[in-house]
Design a protein around this nucleic acid. Structure first.
Lengths: 251, 251
DNA sequence: GCCACAAAATTGTATAGACAAGCTTACCTA
DNA sequence: TAGGTAAGCTTGTCTATACAATTTTGTGGC
């Protein structure tokens, strides 16, 4: 009945944290839509019987996440999750998607067992002979826009059926843990600049020759044996990499 | 010698902002060194005769900037400058060239003073009016092969002649220190994928549409005012970025 | 000396209140 | 009617206080 129940004032979890999470979920569920104003700080404080300063702390979290913005004298508003002009951090894709309240999904294009060719044998340091490789091909998209194309390869040593979750969102370490006898513990990534081939362009919905990031990931087991490999491309107009050097004076 | 004078409680500038700036400068000057503890919140509050909550707000700013970190029950400590990461490697490629015993050189294409256009005014947060910008355009090459093209822009406030060393190998912080009244202390880099324009292709000796890395660097003074900016391109067939990481060790 | 426990120190969370700053609305006056 | 002003919302800043959570320090007993 009372929404106040959603905040547990006696929990070890701080109230401001609970409230931030609550509002985040409400925005994600569409209870507050982009451009709309949140209830005023005083309203929220009264509703949950907490102090205005605590409400402000929660909202400050959401502001720093870019989920809402506050205008003095007017109110606090839900930020627009439009994809236009948004460029994602390459490493925190899903994290950022959640923060921005965007819908994203992975689409499975292909999942099949193939025989290792010479290139794959070289990648996995396999001896001559027949080796089975599990190949996944997925597309990552957000708000109905395709953003990246991923090809994952792992050494297939366990004949287990594919899991439902793997069809939705396969991860390289997850696939290795499930379908091979190896244990993934570390990874090496190589990032290159590339341009879209005709096939890649048509899959991602960009022009042939458009800029791309190409990321090759190799996953190793504890003995540094390569047990998984992926080659993914990311739309250059949707991804960027940022870094911040120290504030200090070098000497 | 009252340090309290450094905070103007009647200024329109918020106290927490003044204090954050003050501590930032003290850290930069080395009055508080990495690993050392700041004075306790209560000490700072007493020293400047402000409330502890206001001190906490200032420190929260510095924490979010990654400059300090707080440990409950222990204190607040100056963080060590983080030497991230991939872009750093890319930028120090010339250094790597030396290590590999390769001949490399920078060639100055242009060095001139221009009037800030709208884009540069926006980058440097300049008000309307006339602002002089010093523009350097250089090419980095190794073994007679051109590898990257750099455009550097700084706010030109000192009319000093160019130094010999600057013509050979200008660096953004160096140019700022010599030709402006600002002190460069930190930098933010953004890396994108791009393709070569006709002009860029002819300068670098690649085909138009060839893959490139594009690196935009913004250099800040202690107040986080942008005082230098560069836009550089690197041949995609000559550069790559590698990293090791453990994304599956996270819980 | 060493351990156990208490006390102190320090950051973390939460509250209530006061006033400032910016925006909107309504009302009053010319 | 038009314009200006005042009132009143809403967010922004700041204070003073209280207590919790965590670490360090000190003390007493053995």
């Amino acid at each position: 009945m009372q929404e106040g129940n959603l905040i547990d004032k006696n929990s070890v979890i701080p109230i401001y944290y609970q409230l931030a999470k609550l509002i985040r979920e409400q925005i994600r569920r569409g209870e507050f839509k982009p451009g709309e104003a949140l209830p005023t700080e005083i309203e929220i404080a009264n509703r949950y019987e907490i102090s205005r300063m605590t409400v402000r702390r929660s909202i400050a979290e959401l502001v720093s996440e870019g989920m809402v913005y506050a205008l003095q004298g007017k109110g606090t508003f839900v930020a627009s999750p439009k994809l236009d002009n948004v460029v994602f951090e390459l490493n925190n894709f899903s994290h950022e998607m959640v923060q921005r309240g965007l819908n994203y999904k992975t689409t499975l294009l292909e999942a099949k067992i193939i025989r290792a060719d010479e290139e794959l044998k070289a990648k996995f340091l396999l001896k001559e002979g027949i080796h089975r490789i599990l190949h996944f091909r997925t597309v990552l998209s957000a708000e109905n826009e395709r953003l990246s194309l991923e090809n994952k390869y792992i050494i297939y040593t366990k004949s287990k059926p594919l899991l439902e979750s793997e069809l939705n969102d396969p991860t390289l370490p997850g696939l290795i843990a499930t379908h091979s006898d190896y244990v993934p513990v570390s990874a090496k990534k190589v990032l290159k600049a590339a341009v879209a081939t005709n096939e890649e362009a048509s899959i991602l919905g960009v022009s042939p020759g458009a800029p791309l990031f190409l990321v090759e990931t190799t996953v190793f087991d504890p003995d540094l044996k390569p047990v998984g490999w992926s080659k993914s491309i990311f739309r250059g107009d949707r991804y960027k990499i940022t870094s911040h050097d120290g504030w200090f004076q070098k000497e």
